[in-house]
């Protein structure tokens, strides 16, 4: 089963106009009637502060206000209109440390470019079907980052030597499973 997104209003924060156009077209194909656009974090904040949006899809590298700063503003600013806004970070970054940084800023989902329609759909579906509890601690506000045991019927890449056949998923890149694990990968003391 899937979802009809007719009534969802996403906002795309992406500095590359071609990529923005591509993501917008994908979302419209999914049924979104209204898709808002911003070319940087500052513009995105202005739109979010002035009109209702249901989900943010944001790039990392933008100026002024990059994706990480944008997520932190939405989650932590006292005048944020929706600190619980679902956020999908859609970025060229795919390294471990970047996923951790995005997670600690408060993203719900992390998607590494290049993008595919199917993967973006899956992440939208995940935000709807698996909303995480929120955590407020002295140092963090956002989706719960604690590890969850998620059944996985695929190959455990930690136990096998990666082979060339995994192209285009490379050995120094993270799989979807690994990214998901990192997004929810902390024990209680670091909520």
């Amino acid at each position: 089963m899937g979802y009809n997104f007719d009534n969802i209003t996403p906002i795309i924060a992406e500095d590359n106009q071609h990529m923005r156009h591509l993501i917008k077209g994908i979302l419209q194909a999914f049924g979104c009637k209204t898709v808002k656009e911003a070319s940087n974090g500052k513009e995105a904040l202005q739109i979010i502060n002035s009109s209702p949006v249901d989900i943010l899809i944001c790039d990392w590298n933008m100026a002024p206000i990059n994706g990480i700063e944008l997520v932190k503003e939405i989650r932590n600013d006292e005048i944020s209109p929706n600190p619980f806004l679902p956020i999908i970070m859609l970025t060229g970054h795919s390294q471990h440390k970047r996923v951790i940084e995005a997670r600690d800023a408060g993203v719900d989902e992390f998607v590494a470019k290049p993008i595919s329609a199917k993967i973006l759909y899956e992440h939208l579906k995940s935000v709807i079907e698996n909303p995480r509890p929120y955590v407020r601690s002295p140092s963090y506000f956002g989706p719960d980052r604690r590890r969850k045991q998620i059944p996985f019927d695929g190959e455990d890449r930690r136990k096998t030597k990666p082979e060339f056949e995994q192209i285009p998923t490379k050995k120094h890149n993270l799989s979807k499973k690994e990214i998901l694990s990192l997004l929810q990968n902390q024990d209680g003391e670091n909520l």
Partner: peptide
């Protein structure tokens, strides 16, 4: 990073 992000997407 831009090239990486766009290549496969297009």
């Amino acid at each position: 990073l831009e090239i990486k992000g766009q290549g496969g997407s297009y």
